[in-house]
Design a protein around this nucleic acid. Structure first.
Lengths: 270, 270
DNA sequence: ATCGAGGTTCCGTATGATGGAACGAGACGA
DNA sequence: TCGTCTCGTTCCATCATACGGAACCTCGAT
């Protein structure tokens, strides 16, 4: 059970071993230790930690002591260091109290209920989308690997395209947004040229919704519509329903669009 | 919608405003800033932050710069500081990869599905229990306020009593565990004397499960059984199903105990 | 009993943190 | 349009604090 689809929303991915950046000092190093700690869900030894941050043991030890003092790190029975409970409490409590989150949660719940698929709320950040809220279906045997705070390229996700379509109104804007990057092409169906994207954005603006038909992940499709959480004119982000293509074909979602709109424009949103 | 029951698992609760501890220095202060940041889901201004950590603006600013460098803090449109996406990503990704969590998740899902109530996995830490995993029912109009990493007094929760019953085998042990504390009594029904608790623990050992009949939160009850995630003899924690008394009476859960046991002892657990 | 692999502590040095004060930018009212 | 107020940002001389090599414990394994 709980088969996994890889990397809908992978991490920025620091170098696997040894965060080999320029030597960090002071509190920067402490924060690097914290990040390294987070990368090791089953704990990490002091030596490995020292190696990971390219510092002597005593320095790593001092940093870990500071983290322990703050409740962000603790030690399991055998001395291995793990992220502290207090750290997780902070993060979860903070997330659940975020204004965005509390605003969209009812909507996400309704949508998740209706389709039994994973739903997201995401915002645009430069060239990628950041997932701000996520709800998994209760009984889903397949779980997407997206994570709150995780990212995906904007141009091949439904949420990203919905948001881009709103802000890039002509092909020049699209071209400017692309700049001189080579757009990633995670699947065969991803759009990667300014022309294709502009055409897509035009369609999206006409339709009022955006789809990702296996453009980001094979076998996964997605329907997204804009969400106006903070302003009635400028969308703050977008809400999406992601389905496994064989279980919830796009057509199902598109046909049901009025219901989705109703939920999103519901009494809970302005 | 989304009515809330107060404080099943409240935070350790730092002083509301002004973390008035002895003056912190260096990285300790940076971590204090991080914690303060987490306490303000809708952002905090530089001045308020400086006040909260009892330091001049420039010091707070330097700390925030370090956090921004690490991706743990960012600024919204108007310069207010909020926790960074990367921070949340770290926390969520870490939690979902924790060995304990991945082991119990299937069990929690099955139980959550079956009863449509919130389920927890928690471990004992001294005099309180710490929630390590939590699953909310999809359609729950009422949400418990428990949070991953949150705590509750062990002696008035089903999970806590189940774990204490396993480790405190006679009344002297119970007395020693209590020490000279005055046990909290969140509701009228909470047990707070060594004698009462010992009797309860005997019953729990005989029955093989533990209940919390509105002892921690009015109107909320709970049934818990031990979970052996790491060792076949020493329980690593306990799994509980928390119901609203009027919706899922304890009797329902107790009557269904064989099914619960079956789920917990399922193919996924040793 | 011995060894080895960690985690922990010590302490002189110099490097980076400190915080008061001045600066800049955006918001608001006149 | 112009002041002015608020709030984030930058500067810099002083000195406290982090640095890290090496010695020290404490287990568990041989």
């Amino acid at each position: 059970m709980a088969e996994t689809i890889t990397s809908l929303a992978a991490a920025p991915e620091g170098n696997p071993e040894a965060t080999a950046e320029a030597r960090l000092v002071g509190s920067d190093r402490v924060l690097a230790v914290l990040a390294e700690l987070a990368r090791h869900p089953d704990g990490i030894g002091l030596d490995d930690m020292a190696r990971a941050i390219a510092s002597p043991k005593s320095t790593a030890h001092r940093a870990l002591a500071a983290l322990r003092r703050a409740g962000f790190a603790s030690q399991d029975g055998r001395g291995r260091y793990v992220l502290g409970d207090e750290f997780l409490r902070m993060a979860f409590a903070h997330h659940e109290a975020r204004p965005d989150h509390v605003r969209v949660l009812p909507v996400l719940q309704a949508l998740c209920d209706r389709y039994g698929e994973t739903v997201h709320y995401a915002v645009l950040d430069g060239t990628s989308v950041v997932y701000r809220s996520k709800l998994d279906p209760p009984a889903g045997a397949v779980r997407l690997t997206s994570v709150v705070g995780g990212r995906n390229p904007a141009h091949c996700t439904a949420v990203g395209k919905a948001l881009l379509a709103d802000s890039l109104r002509d092909e020049n804007a699209v071209r400017a947004w692309i700049g001189n990057r080579q757009l990633e092409k995670p699947t065969e169906r991803s759009l990667t040229t300014a022309a294709d994207l502009h055409a897509e954005f035009v369609r999206i603006r006409e339709q009022g919704y955006s789809v990702d038909d296996r453009e980001n992940e094979p076998g996964v499709n997605c329907l997204a519509v804009l969400a106006y959480l903070t302003s009635p004119t400028k969308p703050s982000g977008a809400v999406s329903v992601s389905g496994l293509a064989y279980r919830t074909p796009l057509k199902t979602l598109v046909d049901d669009l009025p219901a989705i709109r109703a939920v999103i424009a519901g009494p809970d949103l302005p």
